[in-house]
Design a protein around this nucleic acid. Structure first.
Lengths: 243, 243
DNA sequence: AGCGGGCCTTTTGTATGCAATATTGCTCCC
DNA sequence: GGGAGCAATATTGCATACAAAAGGCCCGCT
C-alpha cells in the first residue's frame, strides 16, 4: 500500500460510481472513516479530490454531497466528447498511427469481432464489450499525441454514462437489441480505423463523430425511459446518480 | 471569510499564477502554513485541490511540487481550446443569442474599441484588453448553453498562457506591436459577433477558430524567443512556470 | 396547533502530536 | 577527492483533540 488517502480515494470513487450512494446523499466524514476503517483526515482529503473531479459537491460547513447528473448534463457532455474525439481521430489520421497504436487498435477490433461472433451472447459479453470499446477510444485519443486532449477526454469518465467505457451497459436487458447495436458500432470502429490508417483526416473525424453521435441518441432514449420509470434502478444502480 | 481552506486555496493559486514560485519548486506544508499564518491541515487540503487542477504535482511521501508546462503542452492546450470554443461559437449561432448575452458582447466590443482608439496606448491598457477579451470569450462559451463545455473551457485558465485571459500579456514590451495585434483580434471579434447574431453557425465557428489559431501562432513565436533567452522572466514572472 | 427561541447534539473546520518515510550531512573507507 | 553507509534531521501521513458551526429538539408562548 502506498498511502491511506490514495486507497480511500479509489475506494470511495468505486462506491459512488457503482451506485452505492444515490444523488444527494451526504458523505459524512466520520461515518465513512468508520466504514473504511480509518480516520477523518484521509477521508476528508479523498472527498476533496472527488469534489474536484465533479463527483461530489461541497458546501462550506455543510460537507460533501453526492452530485446528481441530469440527463441534459450527460447529453451535453457527450456532445463535447463528440467534438473532442472527432478532433482526436482527425489528428491521428493526420499524424499517422505508430506501429504500437495500430497493433492495439487491431487487437481491440479482433476482440470485439470475436465477442460478436459468439453463439451465445451473454450479459457479461456486453460488459466486456464496453471495456474494449473504452480501450479502442482511448487508443485513438492517445494517437492524437496531445496530452491535454487526453486529460480532457478522461474527465468524461467521471460523468456517469458519458465516457466511452459506459456504452450500452444500461440500455436494456434485451441482449438481442444490445447485440445489434454493437454490430453497428463495431462496423464504425472498422471504418474509422481504416480512415486513420489511410490518413484521411476528414473521413476519420466524420465517422468518429457520427459514431459518438449515435451512441448519444441511444442514451437519450434510455434516459427518456428512465424518466418514465420504465427502468428499475435496482437493476442498474449507476442510474441512481442520474436525476 | 468562510473557511480557512478556501482562503488558502485562493491565496496559493495567486502565488503560483503570478510566478512567485518557479516550476519544480517544492511546496512544503509547514513553510506555507507559517507564511500564511495557519496550520498544515488547511494548507494540505488546498494543495490537494491545486494538484487536482493541474497546477501542482503530487508524489506520495514526497509532497507537492510546482508543475512545469512545456511550450508544447501549452500549444496543445490551445489547439484543444480552438476546437471547443469553435464548437461554442457554432452552438451559440445555432441557438441564437439571448438579449443579455448580446448586450454583454456588445459591451465588450465597445470597451475594446474604446481602448484601441486611445491616443496614448499604455501597458495597463493591454492588461485591460486581456481581461475584456476573457469576458468576451466566456460570454460566447456560455451562450452555447452547455454547462460541460463551460467547465472544460474554464480549465484552460489553470494552464499558464493557455486561457483567453492571458492574451498578449507577455509577448513583448513593444506597445505598437501589441496594439496592432489587438486591432486584428478585435476585428475578428466583430466578425464572430456578426456571424452569431446572423445565426450563421459555420461562419461563426470558422472565424472563432481562426481567431484562436492566430493567437496560438503568436504565442508559439513568443515561446521560441523564450527558449532562446530573448525574454527576461523577471519582466514576466508567469513565464517561470514554462519549462 | 403553530411558531419561535434557546439549549443540546451532531458534524465540520483547524491545530497538533506522533509515527513513518525521505533527506541531509557526516564519517569513514577506498 | 569521492562515494557508501549510517546517523541526525526534516517532512510527510495519519489520528485525534478541541473549536466552531449547523441542525434538531423541546419547551413555552401566542
Amino acid at each position: 500500500m502506498v498511502t491511506q488517502t490514495e486507497f480511500i480515494s479509489v475506494r470511495l470513487r468505486e462506491l459512488i460510481m457503482t451506485g452505492e450512494f444515490a444523488a444527494g446523499d451526504r458523505m459524512q466524514e466520520k461515518a465513512l472513516a468508520d466504514r473504511l476503517d480509518t480516520s477523518r483526515t484521509p477521508v476528508r482529503l479523498a472527498l476533496t479530490e472527488l469534489a474536484k473531479e465533479g463527483l461530489l459537491e461541497y458546501k462550506p460547513n455543510k460537507g460533501f454531497v453526492v452530485r446528481g447528473f441530469s440527463p441534459e448534463h450527460i447529453l451535453n457532455a457527450i456532445d463535447v466528447r463528440e467534438v473532442l474525439e472527432g478532433m482526436a481521430a482527425r489528428m491521428a489520421a493526420t499524424i499517422g498511427l505508430s506501429e504500437q497504436s495500430q497493433k492495439k487498435l487491431r487487437a481491440s477490433l479482433l476482440q470485439i469481432d470475436g465477442l460478436l461472433a459468439k453463439e451465445e451472447f451473454e450479459y457479461a459479453d456486453a460488459k466486456m464489450y464496453a471495456e474494449i470499446n473504452g480501450d479502442f477510444h482511448s487508443t485513438i485519443v492517445e494517437a492524437a499525441q496531445n496530452e491535454v486532449l487526453v486529460e480532457m477526454v478522461e474527465k468524461f469518465d467521471a460523468i456517469p454514462l458519458a465516457g466511452s467505457k459506459s456504452f450500452a451497459l444500461v440500455t436494456t436487458k434485451d441482449l438481442a437489441a444490445i447485440h445489434q447495436l454493437m454490430e453497428r458500432n463495431q462496423q464504425q470502429h472498422h471504418w474509422v480505423y481504416n480512415a486513420i490508417v489511410d490518413q484521411d483526416p476528414a473521413r476519420a473525424e466524420t465517422i468518429f463523430r457520427q459514431h459518438i453521435h449515435e451512441a448519444r441518441d441511444v442514451l437519450g432514449r434510455v434516459m427518456k425511459d428512465l424518466r418514465q420509470s420504465k427502468i428499475n434502478t435496482s437493476d442498474f444502480p449507476l442510474l441512481r446518480l442520474v436525476g
